[in-house]
Design a protein around this nucleic acid. Sequence first.
RNA 1: GGCCCGAUAGCUCAAUGGUAGAGCAGUUGCCUUUUAAGCAAUUGGUUCUGGGUUCGAGUCCCAGUCGGGCCA
Length: 494
Amino acid sequence: MSEPHDLNAISNDLFAVRREKLAILREAGEDPFRANWDQSHVAADCPALLPEGAEEGPEVSVAGRIVALRVMGKASFVKLLDRSGVVQCYLTRDALGERYDGHFKKLVDLGDFIGVRGRLFRTKTGEVTVRAAAYGLVSKALRPPPEKFHGLADPEQVYRQRYLDLVANHDSRRRLLTRSRIIESIRRFLWSRGFAEVETPALHGVAGGAAARPFVTHFNALDCDFSLRIALELHLKRCLVGGLDRVFEIGRVFRNEGLSRKHNPEFTMLELYQAYTDYRGMMELIRSLIQQVCREVLGSTTVARAEGGEIDLGGEWREVRYKDLILGRTGDPAWFSRTKEEKIEACRRLGLGEPRPDWEDFEVTNEVFAKLVEPTLIQPTFVTHIPRQLCPLAKLTPDDPDTIDVFELCINGQEIAPAYSEQNDPLEQRRMLEAQAGAETHRIDEDFLLALEHGMPPAGGLGVGVDRLGVLLTGAANIRDTILFPTLRPEVRE
RNA sequence: GGCCCGAUAGCUCAAUGGUAGAGCAGUUGCCUUUUAAGCAAUUGGUUCUGGGUUCGAGUCCCAGUCGGGCCA
């Protein structure tokens, strides 16, 4: 540098310019990273504090990140972003004196955090604004923010540097805060129905409760491997055995499978179990839950889809048997009496890919369901009477031993929530788990079966993919848009 | 894992195989009610990486990295 604090010489290096300003501040004895700033109000409070027609409102003290900075000679407007939103502040030489020119105009940048104290007034265009009697730089930003109009557009940077996305992109901020309010609303609903929120282990000796490959890790102290949980189910049922008749958990589960628009390897499940009810009770519960969340969070039971169109979550929901959906889609009334080979041939005619050779008969049929039926179930639909092989943890339908007492709630072309009349016959449960495990008997959670042998009350159980519910209620296009920090390949920095 | 697409200034984006540009941000001025503020001047590039073709490559070819979409 040719002379001390020659910003012009380094003006192409945005980081260096800001570090230089930091040095100037420190030389002047100022702490550019203060411990605190007393906020009397947040941005969203301000409009209500200035009554219509009033010239001037009360004094407030606000703080936030500068997201807009308009300097007009001896007066400037800044917009501060805090947790509630944005508030405008008006800083002038008249009110601030020499500090306005020497400090504010020279050393405060877009992206810095400042605090502002002053009375509220309304500008010519009607915006409620803080007239700064005093301000302070509370935290300097050494990196420049993204472009102010387009925000951050590169999807990789949006996910890797979500903090920038949250500052720059209003929609992202709104969507991710909505997710938080959805979870808050779910908890309120369940508490009001007498459910206890519990926490169960994430490290499992045997990862059970679903069919998925687990992440495996090693516990040094016991010198043994653990799996990260793939479901919450088996421990919550142990709670039922222990007499906790209504329990739920909202927790992260981990499945060592693909990444896609609909899948993140770690995602959030809500699972709940209610004794002395069955899957029919779960129907009423999930519909009431989703409708209450909609009303509380969105103020409406109608939501827009990213792909266009609307979903109406109000009123009663359609209920239809799995078998009828298959017959309707294949147009073959004798579908279920066909051989596996005939079904595979029919799948080819329907334009489905070649089924894997090791597939069972019911898996061929389920391919039709997953590929050709589920994506068409946009409006809320309870699919019932599902083939028993698809879930070993539910009770058989009393009048149809081929199906189970469950529903699969589909909305927006996706499975949102399955629910069961839970299997509580320990001998039947063992038989079904053994059939599912085949030769891999080490994958059976023996302690869970032992618990069932002590007796579990009849119960309905429900699982909800919270991320997918977030996609549904926020109109997002991608599950990553409702997850703050989605899984990405670790970045290698040199 | 397969196929397709993308990667250019801090950000958003341009650029027939022929001297890499713009807007915003930055720097220097002017500007006391702005709303993507305005005006003037100005700085800023390993065009993702490595090979190749060519007189000449941001552009064409091959391989790789990272990301996105579709499929499995």
